[in-house]
Computed example of a mutant assay.
Amino acid sequence: MTLTRTELARYVDHTLLKPEATAEQVAELVAEGADLGVFSVCVSPSMLPLDVPEGMAIATVCGFPSGKHHSAIKAAEAARSILDGADEIDMVIDIAAANAGEFAVVEADIAAVRAAVPEGKILKVIIESAALSDAAITGACLAAEAAGADFVKTSTGFHPAGGASKHAIELMAKAVGGRLGIKASGGVRTADDALEMINAGATRLGLSGTRAVLDGLDGTGGAHIVNPGAAGY
């Protein structure tokens, strides 16, 4: 199939998570997201509530970016964000627990946040894939599924190990087998990057430079993808 600019935009969580971000910059993010036709905007929880156009979802983060928060604190943060209007919560796992093979700990952490995120709201689980072994990527994805998550997500975009990769997306897709969505985030800066992630199995993209990615699709007549996911899954 051929993916158009409009269709690619519907994969995108248009993101601004810089700690120095201002209310004015967040308002600009929302306006740009509306102009581009993105699925959602993703901002820090302290920037909520937001006034967004009809049809645009609001995402925020939890336990971000380290994941080294008590589960009860992550759950409380998620619950507050839901009260402040968030539709989707992107939480960070305890990365060390995953790499140590302590997947019961990872699952319990995710389950605590899931209990604070009601039915009808989306929970995405950031596993920080570049910092994990292949076995830990698979185990973390299975723990997320067991805990009731809706998505697994590659990266915060803040870890020195790096962001999304084709290899990680393929491992994640194999682990969840279409039962969960997969979000590629961190280092996806071009249309080619975005298409590579979608071809590997991503069903959502976390982008801070969305306009540049979409502009990169222009002039190509659209781009062919071989493994289309359900945008907005």
Rank of each mutant, 00 (worst) to 15 (best):
140 A>C: 12
110 I>D: 12
23 A>L: 13
35 D>T: 15
135 A>D: 15
86 A>Y: 02
34 A>I: 03
66 S>K: 12
100 A>H: 14
136 A>W: 02
54 E>G: 13
141 C>N: 05
134 D>Q: 14
95 I>H: 07
65 P>E: 09
115 A>R: 12
130 A>T: 04
119 E>C: 05
44 S>M: 11
137 I>K: 14
47 M>S: 11
15 T>L: 11
48 L>I: 03
61 V>R: 04
51 D>N: 14
56 M>F: 00
64 F>V: 01
102 E>C: 10
126 I>R: 07
68 K>D: 15
142 L>P: 09
105 V>Y: 06
112 A>E: 08
53 P>Q: 10
70 H>T: 08
40 S>Y: 00
29 L>D: 12
137 I>H: 03
56 M>W: 02
20 E>F: 12
44 S>R: 14
86 A>Q: 09
90 D>H: 03
82 I>V: 06
41 V>W: 00
112 A>S: 12
22 T>L: 11
78 A>P: 06
116 A>R: 09
25 Q>T: 03
105 V>C: 06
26 V>D: 09
26 V>S: 10
52 V>A: 00
58 I>P: 07
113 V>H: 07
27 A>R: 15
96 A>L: 13
111 A>F: 01
132 L>C: 01
43 V>H: 03
16 L>N: 14
67 G>D: 04
46 S>L: 13
118 P>W: 02
125 V>S: 02
95 I>E: 12
104 A>M: 11
36 L>D: 12
15 T>N: 09
49 P>C: 04
44 S>D: 08
23 A>F: 03
122 I>G: 03
114 R>M: 08
69 H>M: 12
116 A>W: 02
76 A>C: 07
93 I>V: 06
94 D>W: 02
15 T>S: 11
127 I>P: 07
141 C>L: 02
39 F>C: 14
105 V>E: 13
141 C>E: 05
57 A>P: 08
16 L>K: 09
52 V>E: 03
32 E>F: 00
50 L>E: 06
39 F>K: 14
116 A>T: 08
18 K>W: 08
49 P>T: 09
142 L>V: 09
38 V>Y: 01
90 D>K: 06
54 E>M: 04
38 V>C: 06
130 A>K: 06
42 C>A: 06
137 I>E: 04
132 L>G: 00
102 E>A: 13
70 H>D: 08
85 G>L: 01
135 A>S: 14
142 L>D: 10
69 H>A: 12
60 T>L: 08
138 T>D: 14
115 A>M: 10
89 I>P: 04
82 I>K: 01
100 A>V: 05
110 I>M: 10
114 R>C: 05
32 E>I: 04
118 P>S: 07
46 S>C: 11
49 P>A: 02
41 V>C: 04
32 E>Q: 14
101 G>H: 11
127 I>K: 08
138 T>S: 13
83 L>V: 13
32 E>P: 05
109 D>N: 10
88 E>A: 08
141 C>F: 00
95 I>V: 12
50 L>P: 03
119 E>Q: 15
129 S>Q: 09
59 A>P: 02
36 L>W: 02
137 I>V: 10
77 E>W: 01
81 S>E: 07
101 G>P: 13
82 I>R: 01
91 M>C: 03
61 V>P: 03
53 P>W: 01
106 V>Q: 05
136 A>G: 06
56 M>P: 08
78 A>F: 00
120 G>H: 05
104 A>Q: 15
90 D>C: 03
